[in-house]
């Protein structure tokens, strides 16, 4: 079997692993090999998006949501990967995590990491390209509208994401 030396940045830490199967799914690398089980496995065919992480090509690059259950590790070679375990900074929860808590957004919580990471990418997008206030709901639907949650009916996820967008300076245009 052909193998590769995998090098990437994972939650601000350099990760180098030899003899990695290039086809190994990123979800298995995280959950099985590294024991980072915050990223979930839901459907395995990139539909439910519970397995979403954020990926940047280069520092400062756009954050893109990536579905780890079908993504081979070779696709993230040299890239910067952020998982739910890397969201909190300097001992403080990310505003999205706080908002998800305070809005009672999730119930069983299994979909929460996927929603968090996709919303995290949305904030990055809006920071680069702010939108008018009346486009927020559309932007949220665009970012997480395909995510599956069986418990919540989505309502409180959307409310939380909306609140964070409004509370974060620079994401919404004044017009």
């Amino acid at each position: 079997m052909e193998t590769m030396t995998l090098e990437l940045t994972l939650n601000n830490q350099r990760l180098v692993r030899d003899n990695v199967d290039p086809d190994l799914k990123l979800n298995d690398l995280l959950r099985e090999d590294l024991g980072m089980t915050g990223t979930k496995f839901g459907c395995g065919i990139a539909v439910c998006r519970a397995c979403t992480v954020a990926v940047q090509r280069v520092p400062g690059g756009h954050l893109e949501p990536v579905r780890t259950c079908t993504t081979p590790v070779s696709a993230v070679q040299g890239k910067i990967v952020t998982t739910v375990e890397g969201l909190a900074q300097e001992g403080e929860l990310h505003p999205l995590q706080k908002a998800f808590l305070e809005h009672f957004s999730f119930q069983c919580g299994y979909s929460a990491p996927g929603f968090l990471m996709a919303s995290f990418c949305l904030l990055d997008k809006l920071k680069r390209s702010p939108i008018p206030k009346d486009k927020i709901d559309e932007a949220i639907l665009d970012a997480v509208g395909q995510h599956v949650c069986r418990c919540t009916g989505y309502v409180r996820y959307y409310e939380a994401i909306r609140d964070v967008i409004l509370a974060t300076p620079g994401l919404v245009t004044s017009s």
Binding site: E32, T37, T39, F41, T83, E85, F100, G109
Partner: peptide, 24 residues
């Protein structure tokens, strides 16, 4: 203010059966 299990869930802690391995 939030669920008692909320912090564990929102930070991706090991709490579900699928998260555990023998080594844990």
């Amino acid at each position: 203010r939030f669920r008692i299990d909320g912090f564990a869930k929102v930070t991706g802690q090991k709490i579900y059966a699928r998260d555990f391995r023998a080594r844990d």
